[in-house]
Write a protein that binds this DNA or RNA. Structure first.
Length: 763
RNA sequence: GCCAAGGUGGCGGAAUGGUAGACGCACAGGACUUAAAAUCCUGAGAGGGCCUAAAAACCUUCAUGUGAGUUCGAGUCUCACCCUUGGUACCA
């Protein structure tokens, strides 16, 4: 053991705490601000490799930017409401609050142990009344604006967690959290009207310098489609069947109409259908199926409504009407005109039911308008369902008057505290309904006959605005500070998991736009840059999971090799700017430790102060520029490689102390503890983390190796002054025997010369 | 199916259209050691040639999923195809 990492880490961390090194002074105007954000964690209890990957690697950039003179805000907090606390309460009889705060305390210590330079003075806990008071206040603002709305709608229900879910929380027809197949229920719930912002959420993407795949995923989720409403009258009745189509021009080829089994018109029309029983049976069958079963079965099924016809508004012909489950009640109007000649699904259905396929002339927009067509745009995105029938969440700040009308809880009664006299067991009823205190509170404040809202908010609401709160986390008078928001927002760079692309990131964008419209925040887009992080897999290349037994505990490696080696390993394993999957390589951490030990040995060979030779100054400058540029792209793997290359060179020819100090400064973001230790040994002032990044402007390079090609094929290389002319370069190139041979006595017709790179002789 | 991102040694990965494989792991040989570990040095894309007792050096061909193309020059640009990963899906 070339060095004692435990001792060094302990000393370094104490030193930083003593110097209060990472407190960001947000009012400091002498340095340019930079807001670096990593998605705050859920306090599950233990830091795993994923947390290390999320925070330790992002921390490298925070540290690098500080050394480069930026005023960096790198905050941390906990997304502390949520189901696991409640499940622990049910399973082990613990208090969810106690369970949560205990986990937070434990994770704080672990986060500090990785050497992360968080500004703990800005910490935010979403379950703290001082925080959720403002979640509630913002909710009431949205409510007053009509953006929070209570209504009955078919909703996704998880029978295991006994709560409703947002559309975004249903993955392949299953609950995102527990994997149980979701059911559909019709319930009265709170929604945030994200659909009102569909177009602006789409437009806003254009300006953002995000990776295309992130933008595309959001665009697909919003799902814009432009088309038209067309009406198909039912003869001898008042009703018309309104359909949505993206291809109104194909209306001449519409040979039948299909209603979704959920279509409301079925109720009224059923009496005049001759085969009522068959239709009823089909509707019943459909209802019994889960959404998953319904979409898995691609075989087209359906029933004709005997005795009911519809008139094609283009051809005026009477065409049959079917009910079929390939048409969804929740999209468009729940009814489609079927054009088997143009639509694959219609073609399949027509084939199964022996319906005619009609190639027809296209209809012009004029013609479509004449037949009552109306241009319309539809979006796939649904309003955000935020009610949860669970305990450990932010209480919805709503009370109902005796007539059942909802009212926002006035600001002076916020925080609207989560009651504690509650039965947690999930029954399908909201747990808060069992609280006597809550009912009494409502009666006391609002009067007899008033009743509380018993549901709590989806935790994604809590996390939709936390980045505003970080600027002024303790403000008792406002959710954030207007002046600081203007200066510090938007977040410069936001790092997180790809699983949040269509959930958290979309919600936060919606929240920001809504608050902007309320003149509460100065920005329309919350995150200037967004980076999705990859995944660290088990040593077997599989996703880590307890059941596979391939979970790697970072604590073991930290104990053996030190936090710095683990940080370096995670940064070196692959580019951080794209979400790749990297297997945990057991030898990898050991290799990083060896690298650090070589650094220690190099420092022991430090010579007395001596002037730095130009060539050494130049490699230091080149390395500094490379690491900084790579850091800006979130490519820490190549930055470390540059540092290793420099170390290799220094080992061959030990440089003077000034160059060693520069090396340690560049190492400091990656290996903060050891660098602090070595900095002291080299007689550096204060903390290495307060030093200045080595200047990247390099001494003028005099000469470089130029590759020589003949007709594009490499034949050798020559050393040339950078200023060498094309003629000089050609002359030097032709002097090479290999070139003479390749030219075989002929003069080249022309040359292509890229100074410092190549000279190509073309015949 | 559709959309997106990818495909480079045994492995993780490097390469603003300009010397492919940086850096590291694993591997092999050597030094040190009584021995091992650690450390240090050296080697290596694949094949062939030349010279050899053997090697080095040297020369040469082929190499970035496959096939074409643009270019003085292509891992990088264009087209087609194959495969992998992620997102999404009877969304009319």
């Amino acid at each position: 053991m070339a060095y004692d990492h435990r001792e060094i880490e302990k000393k370094a961390q104490e030193k930083w705490t003593g110097l209060d090194l990472y407190r960001a002074d947000l009012s400091d105007d002498t340095r340019e601000p930079y807001y670096l954000l990593a998605e705050f964690p859920y306090p599950s209890g233990d830091l795993h490799i994923g947390h290390w990957y999320a925070f330790a690697v992002t921390d490298i950039y925070a540290r690098m930017l500080r050394l480069r003179g930026r005023n960096v805000l790198f905050p941390i907090g906990f997304d502390a409401f949520g189901l696991p606390a409640e499940n622990a309460a049910i399973k082990h009889g613990l208090d969810p609050s106690e369970w949560t705060y205990k986990n937070i305390a434990r994770m704080r210590a672990q986060l500090i142990s990785m050497g992360a330079s968080f500004d703990w003075s800005k910490e935010v806990l979403t379950c703290d009344p001082g925080y959720y008071q403002w979640t509630q206040w913002l909710f009431t603002k949205l409510f007053e604006q009509g953006l929070a709305e209570r209504r009955a709608a078919p909703v996704k229900w998880c029978p295991k967690d006994q709560t409703v879910l947002a559309n975004e929380q249903v993955i392949d027809g299953r609950c995102e959290r527990c994997g149980t197949e979701v059911e559909e229920k019709r319930l009265t719930q709170w929604f945030l009207k994200i659909t009102d912002y569909a177009e602006r959420l789409l437009e806003g993407l254009a300006e953002l310098p995000w990776r295309e795949e992130i933008k595309e995923a959001q665009r697909a989720w919003i799902g814009k489609s432009e088309g038209a409403y067309l009406e198909f009258p039912i003869p001898h009745r008042d009703e018309k069947i309104k359909v949505f189509t993206t291809r109104p021009d194909t209306v001449y080829g519409a040979t039948y109409v299909v209603l979704a089994p959920e279509h409301p018109l079925l109720e009224t029309i059923l009496a005049s259908v001759q085969n009522v029983d068959a239709v009823r049976a089909y509707i019943r069958d459909t209802k019994r199926k889960t959404e998953r079963e319904r979409s898995e079965n691609k075989e087209k099924t359906g029933v004709k409504l005997e005795g009911v016809l519809a008139i094609n508004p283009a051809t005026k012909e009477e065409i049959p009407v079917y009910v079929a489950d390939y048409v969804l009640g929740s999209y468009g109007t729940g009814a489609v005109m079927a054009v088997p000649a143009h639509d694959e699904r219609d073609a399949e259905f027509a084939h199964a039911f022996n319906l005619p396929v009609l190639e027809a002339q296209p209809a012009s927009w004029d013609a479509i308008t004449m037949m009552g067509g109306e241009r319309v745009t539809h979006y796939r995105i649904r309003d955000w369902l935020v009610s949860r029938q669970r305990y450990w969440g932010c209480p919805i700040p709503i009370v109902y008057d005796p007539s059942g009308k909802p009212h926002a809880v006035p600001a002076e009664h916020l925080p609207w505290l989560l009651p504690t006299d509650v039965d947690f067991k999930p029954t399908g009823e909201a747990p808060l309904a069992s609280s006597k205190e809550l009912k009494e509170r409502v009666t006391r404040i609002f009067g007899e006959g008033w009743t509380p809202e018993y549901d709590t908010l989806d935790t994604f609401v809590d996390s939709s605005w936390y980045f505003f709160r970080y600027l002024d986390p303790k403000n008792p008078h406002d959710f954030s500070d207007a002046v600081l928001m203007k200066k510090w927002l938007p977040v410069d760079r936001y790092s997180g998991g790809s699983e949040h692309t269509t959930m958290h990131v979309l919600y936060a964008r919606f929240f920001t736009k809504a608050l902007y419209d309320l003149a509460l925040v100065p920005i329309e887009e919350p995150f200037h840059e967004r980076f999705n992080r990859g995944l660290i897999l088990g040593p077997d290349g599989q996703k880590m999971s307890k059941s596979k037994g391939n979970v790697v505990n970072p604590d073991d490696f930290v104990a053996t090799y030190g936090a710095d080696a683990v940080r370096l390993y995670l940064a070196f394993v692959g580019p951080y700017n794209e979400p790749g999957n990297y297997p945990w390589n057991l030898d990898g951490v050991a290799a990083m430790r060896k690298f650090l030990e070589r650094v220690v040995r190099l420092m022991e060979r430090a010579r007395e102060e001596a002037p730095t030779p130009d060539s050494v100054a130049e490699s230091v400058a080149r390395t500094s520029a490379k690491i900084a540029a790579d850091g800006d792209r979130f490519k820490f793997n190549t930055g470390i490689a540059a540092l290793m290359t420099l170390l290799n060179a220094f080992e061959d020819t030990p440089p003077p102390t000034a160059a060693l100090r520069a090396f340690i400064i560049m190492l400091a973001p990656f290996a903060p503890h050891l660098s602090e230790h070595l900095w002291e040994k080299l007689g550096g002032e204060g903390s290495v983390h307060q030093a200045s990044w080595p200047a990247a402007s390099r001494a003028t390079v005099q000469e470089s190796e130029v590759a020589v090609q003949v007709n594009g094929k490499r034949r050798g290389s020559v050393r040339l002054p950078l200023a060498a002319s094309e003629e000089d370069a050609a002359r030097a190139a032709r002097a090479l025997p290999a070139v003479t041979a390749a030219l075989a006595g002929k003069d080249p017709a022309r040359t292509v010369y890229v100074p410092g790179k190549i000279i190509n002789l073309v015949s």
